[in-house]
Design a protein around this nucleic acid. Structure first.
Length: 110
DNA sequence: ACGGTGACCACTT
DNA sequence: TAAGTGGCCACCG
């Protein structure tokens, strides 16, 4: 994935598209992969803008496996619905065995 | 031009 | 163990 600040948002979207079904990742993991030290906030921001795009935004959670972006879906419950539909179990807005299904681009994509 | 804000994270009480 | 604080960078009014 090309690294270009101009296409920062596009890079984020590309990575999100690569997340395997049934796996999840975090904003921070994506930020690290893109080389931004603590740019997790910008990743989250990019995701907000991705609302209308065709990408699995529901597979992106915060660093603790919490569905923080749930409120930005329509309806808000759809995020959890989509995850469960892919075999990801959610309990109290938090993914079960988050560490296990965590997909880190910096490790997986090398 | 400037300050406030955000789908966050890591470190410090 | 849980809550508080600073840092990071782009967008908006």
């Amino acid at each position: 994935v090309a690294r270009d600040h101009e296409n920062f948002f596009l890079e984020v979207y590309e990575v999100v598209k690569l997340i395997p079904k049934g796996r999840v990742t975090s904003y921070g993991a994506i930020a690290r992969y893109l080389g931004i030290k603590s740019g997790a906030r910008m990743v989250g921001w990019a995701m907000k803008a991705s609302r209308t795009l065709d990408i699995p935004a529901h597979r992106v959670l915060n660093g603790q496996g919490l569905l923080t972006g749930r409120h930005h879906f329509n309806p808000p419950e759809s995020m959890q619905q989509l995850l469960e539909k892919e075999g990801v179990q959610v309990h109290e807005d938090k993914v079960k065995d988050f560490e296990k299904i965590l997909w880190e681009p910096v490790k997986e994509l090398l």
